[in-house]
């Protein structure tokens, strides 16, 4: 079985976001990078399914040259190969992103049976790239999946609903599935894993961006939401603050 996982390089935001001067990106001068949590679980799921059923796993990203770091991170936890669709760093909208990913998948000599995505990216949260890729490839698609099992050319998926019930879908493969954090607990990369990942090739290409520059969902600028405006009341230091805390609990009617 061949499994593809699509990931996106995003900054590791701490407690406070600072924007670049042109207000089109997060200032990352002091930040590290990662991929979206859902996608990390997607990679772990792919590695587990290949361990179980045999085959090969591929991680794909569309992003700047620096995103190679994220591809190697995922090869370090056991993904077999990497495909890098290079951009100049400018963010592509969901339609352009999906077109480039679908074209790349269509050009692969070996078809994928399972195409995994994160339910939504941590940064843009557009909730649509996977679904658009599915339509371009004529494949069925389910989203928000918290459990996957593969049997006899079918994939069984459980989708968590508000309140905790789960809806079950059985799809014939090939299929597109978006996963959510909690489907598994991703492993940490081992040192040998990191060393192996360093030596693995990354297949890179530079796709043409589909669509006119001012089309689709065109980002104009980013803004920070107004602050909470809260002025916190300091109840005290250490264990000595306990009576003041219980005073607040009384005021709130909780004790």
């Amino acid at each position: 079985m061949n499994i593809l996982v699509c990931v996106k390089r995003v900054p590791l935001t701490g407690g406070k976001i600072v924007l670049t001067e042109d207000e089109r990106a997060i200032s990352t001068r002091h930040l590290g990078f990662t991929i979206s949590p859902h996608e990390e679980c997607g990679c772990e799921e792919a590695v587990r399914l290949i361990e179980q059923h045999g085959g090969s796993s591929t991680v794909l990203t569309l992003g700047p040259p620096e995103a190679e770091e994220q591809l190697r991170d995922m090869m370090a936890i056991g993904i077999d190969r990497a495909v890098h669709l290079l951009t100049d760093g400018e963010e592509w909208d969901p339609q352009a992103t999906a077109s480039a990913i679908a074209a790349s998948i269509g050009a692969e000599p070996e078809p994928y049976e399972l195409l995994l995505f994160g339910n939504e990216s941590a940064d843009a949260g557009n909730y649509q790239v996977a679904i658009r890729v599915a339509y371009k490839l004529g494949l069925p698609c389910v989203t928000g999946i918290k459990a996957i099992s593969v049997q006899d050319g079918h994939v069984r998926c459980e989708q968590e609903m508000p309140g905790g019930s789960r809806d079950v879908y059985e799809l014939p493969m090939p299929a597109v599935v978006t996963v959510k954090e909690g489907i598994n607990l991703p492993r940490y990369p081992s040192v040998p894993g990191r060393l192996r990942a360093k030596r693995k090739p990354v297949e890179s290409s530079t796709p043409a961006r589909a669509g006119e520059p001012k089309s689709g969902l065109e980002m104009v600028r980013l803004t920070l939401p107004p602050g909470s405006g809260k002025q916190a009341e300091v109840l005290g230091d250490g264990a000595g603050a306990a009576p003041a805390v219980v005073g607040v609990l009384h005021e709130l009617g909780l004790v």
């Binding site: 406070k16 009341e233 109840l235 230091d237 264990a239 603050a241």
Partner: peptide, 27 residues
């Protein structure tokens, strides 16, 4: 300097291993 304080209504500065049992005991 914890950034959570910027969004808090009430703040206790201290080690949770001391503060939390003290709150439970006080309740």
């Amino acid at each position: 300097e914890a950034s959570i304080f910027a969004n808090a209504d009430y703040v206790v500065i201290g080690d949770l291993h001391e503060v939390v049992p003290a709150i439970s005991a006080e309740i």
